[in-house]
Design a protein around this nucleic acid. Structure first.
Lengths: 399, 399
DNA sequence: TTATTTAATTCGCATTCCGACAAAAATAAC
DNA sequence: GTTATTTTTGTCGGAATGCGAATTAAATAA
């Protein structure tokens, strides 16, 4: 257990204030005091220190005051966008998406590389990632020295704490210390995180879970992932392990184990397509779901039944997750949502059937089809959060 | 978020020291300092305060010293057993078990009431519980005024934080504020907790998880419960909700939803027995599993196949839990373990099939058939933990 | 009897947060 | 235009905390 000393105390309160400024910024000191339950004295001291470190700024321009406002006007504080830059990335099987954001998480530049990297050797992938990061940083008018941290998000089982990729559908090798590899290549602090966790934080910071401190997110992509937010924090399993939902067992059929991935995995939904055909080509390029959507509109029966089957499987899985975590909201994201109403309807009805009566109405189902940029922005948020936590001026006490 | 002030700091460190004394006591101050990473100065100050409050005692008698020990001898510290008394209880459908423990969690007296309370009105159950607590306290040679806290553990969905019983197989009513009801009746601070959580803490304190800070426990009784230990703490869901594993969906059969409880619930395993028969009578008295064990030994084919079916279902469920939490150990407890080798073997093989290859070997399966007393002792531990946490001398600073 | 070794305590310092008060900066009243 | 009022922000001293250095305590070894 971590020992509680004054330093930890300050770290906690600093993070608390900083995060309050992030969430509710521009915000006056008095309001920070109200929200954090810290005394105005303490808030003043901490904000002074944060101002001194250049992490926040007083807002002068456009002092919006109420008409009837009396007394000394509030000085609004907000994050200093220029306090840091980070890179967030979503690495998927058929594309990589990079964003550079400022200290607030606002996107400065983005870059999509539509490259199929499936099962390439680690060196090739690392080359491509390195290239993407560098190009995106240049696009933002920056140099890598200006970047404080990089967070790469990928599908699979990612051990954030150690930087290892235990297993990922896009890696041929297992148990790669990708964080160390990329830190060395970029000469910039680099961390890794599950893509599901990244999009979970994205929704907590910018999306459909800003108002919640507990929720669950399920990502339906090539891999099926899970993110659990618990008390405003990502719930990382025992060893920082992420969850691989696709491995969940839905039943023991006559042919053996039926896993969720075999019903709702991207490749299983799309099925075997004749090589060289237009559909197969679309899949190879990562446009499989978009193509499937078009085919479903044209009433392709095989695809429609696959979508329905997948929806049922996911609906049951979601119900099981809700049974375990009882979150107030479940957000579903990922490319499979593009399958359309057949998929969603069967998902909803399977969920309604599978959810135990006692939990009926506890969890709200929300569907979200964000762009890949949003995922990458979430990865950036992971990097930013670690910056917020890190002690900035370890060089002696605050003045 | 809780604001970090010196008071919180002290509370954290006090709890840390106290818990270290509990776990490793009798223990010298130097060793506490090593284990907690607190300075010897701080440990001295905190232990002085704990001694002052009478929560710990120096051990004089039988100073076991190493032969070759030089220097000033260590003063061993241990919990003061008389610092507090608590009552822990396991309330099940066909019996109630009470224990009175001292501050260390050692059992002073125990009492089993083999009463069937299934679905009785709340008043009747409360009467019986009140009676049991009072009798067990008297058995320990105490009066209720000597008891600092009572913790009642029951099956079902229990909201520990608010003291409400959301739903329980032994309650006719739902959403009962049982903690308030019993606090009023006993005139003693009373809390409620899921029985699965109680036995989870029992294993962490006294049983097969003393060495772990993360683990998962699955209880197989009338109700199927789950306890998750995360960082030495019980993981309580969003609203302090407990988990009801029986509601997990294992598959969509031709007859609709197949829930775990329909395969592995106690009543489903034992099946419909002819009313008035010996078996039915045994079930009514809570001896169903013992009876079943005897029948299985006598090669009752219906029961054997039920046991095998249940084992398969539980094995799959355990694999799914492991997929989500990746704990280093899973402890299985509960009356259903009495089904014997057929059940265990099919559980193990289903687990081996269902566990994803990447997680093979991550979790160790441990079976435990503790007495009901152990469950009740776990409930007592829940009560004790809250005492450890609570600020003892809010009356001014330490001297 | 003296030196050595280990454990525990005392003392002073740095840090934290907080309450009371004072300064700052605006509007409202005259 | 000057003064009073209101609200926000900063300053100062107090209380509590943990830590490092030095000191005391209590035993064995020489």
């Amino acid at each position: 257990m971590k020992t509680a000393d004054p330093e930890l105390m300050r770290a906690i309160n600093r993070l608390n204030v900083l995060d309050t400024v992030r969430r509710y910024g521009p915000i006056a000191r008095v309001e920070i005091s109200e929200r954090t339950q810290l005394s105005t004295t303490t808030v003043s001291a901490i904000t002074a220190s944060l101002l001194d470190d250049g992490l926040i700024l007083p807002r002068h321009e456009g002092d919006i005051r109420n008409e009837a406002a009396r007394g000394r006007p509030r000085v609004m504080l907000e994050l200093n966008p220029d306090a840091a830059r980070v890179v967030g990335a979503k690495i998927a099987a058929s594309r990589m998406v990079f964003v550079v954001t400022d200290f607030r998480g606002d996107v400065l530049s983005n870059l999509t590389l539509p490259i199929r990297i499936d099962r390439q050797p680690i060196g090739v992938i690392a080359d491509l990632v390195e290239d993407g990061v560098r190009r995106c940083v240049v696009d933002a008018g920056l140099s890598l020295e200006d970047v404080d941290s990089v967070c790469l998000s990928l599908p699979g089982v990612i051990e954030h704490r150690t930087g290892h990729i235990r297993s990922s559908p896009i890696f041929r090798d297992v148990n790669v210390d990708f964080a160390a590899e990329m830190t060395a290549r970029l000469n910039t602090s680099t961390i890794v995180e599950s893509d599901a966790h990244a999009i979970t934080l994205a929704h907590h910071w910018f999306g459909k879970a800003r108002d919640l401190e507990d929720m669950v997110l399920i990502s339906l992509e090539q891999t099926l992932g899970l993110g659990v937010l618990h008390g405003n924090q990502l719930f990382r399993g025992a060893g920082g392990l992420s969850h691989n939902l696709g491995d969940l067992v839905l039943g023991m059929g006559p042919l053996g184990i039926v896993r969720l991935s075999s019903q709702a995995g991207e490749s299983e939904i799309l099925g075997e397509q004749p090589a060289g055909g237009r559909f197969a080509e679309a899949i190879r390029l990562g446009r499989g779901m978009a193509h499937a959507q078009a085919l479903i509109k044209a009433e392709d029966n095989a695809l429609i039944s696959a979508a329905i089957r997948a929806g049922e499987a996911v609906g049951v899985a979601v119900a099981n997750i809700v049974t375990l975590f009882a979150p107030p909201r479940v957000i579903l994201v990922g490319s499979s949502l593009a399958l359309g109403e057949h998929f969603l309807a069967s998902l909803r009805s399977a969920y309604a059937l599978a959810i135990p009566p006692s939990l009926k109405g506890v969890a709200e189902l929300v569907f979200d089809d964000s762009t890949d940029d949003f995922w990458a922005q979430g990865a950036a948020a992971v990097a930013l959060y670690e910056l917020y936590e890190s002690p900035w001026n370890t060089t002696g006490p605050a003045l």
